[in-house]
Amino acid sequence: MPLLEVEDLGVEFRRRGLEPFRAVDGVSFDVDPGQTVGLVGESGCGKSVTSLAIMRLLMPRGNRVTGRVSFDGTDLLRLPIRDMRDRRGRDLAMIFQDPLSSLNPVISIGLQVTEVLQRHRGMKQSAARAEARDLLDQVGIPDPDRRLKEYPHQLSGGMRQRALIAMAVACRPRLLIADEPTTALDVTIQAQILQLLGTLVRENGTALIMITHDLGVVAGLCDEVNVLYGGRIVERANRHELFATPQHPYTHGLLASIPRLDAPAGERLHPVQGSVSDNIPWTSACAFAPRCGNEVDRCRSASPELTAAPLGHGHQLRCFNPVLPDGAGVGATGGSAPVDSAGEAL
């Protein structure tokens, strides 16, 4: 049985005087115990909102969350908020993008780590202190005794993120959500942090939702990958399938935009052209259509559903005209053979 089942999750922002905006729209996915699931997509596609909705961390006003988020059989969205608070940090925890602003600047690192231990594990101050020391040690912070007494601005970026990871894993949560945990860090440090996360997750058997716009991170860490576009999942596959046979034009574009060391010098990268601002609503079209090289007539008149992909097992796709391997090697702009998608259940 999956540890986390997200079913038809929707988040709609409502601001007075503005059209309601669906940031997340019918997102469903499962996370098995110990599994690492990727949530990939470019800026603004709804990755953070999805994770905040799962954690119930969205501000109470100005939005509406629908669907089910079942964690170990309990629907988190319908849990009394007190119970949810008891679970956060204990059963499921989160790591954020910007390590400096995610730490409280006026209290010491030690106090911030012991706060979690005292909250969820009922530890006394002295025991919590010792445990905090061990935790910092575990996440690879040198000289933990000294660092415990220091303030966030005295630590380097990488160390801050390590400290935040220490807080997140302090109570051995069964699910960890990492929202672009390396985006704000140097490249060399990024690799170290990812390695640390990988190790912790493996050793503790923690399930991980890895949010990123970097397919390199996905390749190194994730078992399953969900590609998000405009608040909907457009492609889902296990890592090998996704990299071997990406079929959604958007995924295809993302993969083509990764610089390759073995590419001939001077070859241009193929970033996905356009930007999120070009999106059209999903209601009666494919939101990606304005940027898609594979667009067919139906793309503007009907909304594609997430269905089994033409190739692969358990590979799912939301597209009328997928990119197939005979057209491989070209980016989203390349003209792959139009495929009649009649085979797809609509």
């Binding site: 008891d86 956060r88 954020f96 706060e115």
Partner: peptide, 19 residues
């Protein structure tokens, strides 16, 4: 961000406000 991070760790309301 840091209040969000504290909330994500389940810190209770009073310490969120006062600490």
């Amino acid at each position: 961000d840091h209040v969000l991070a504290a909330r994500a760790l389940g810190v209770k309301r009073a310490p969120i406000v006062f600490r």
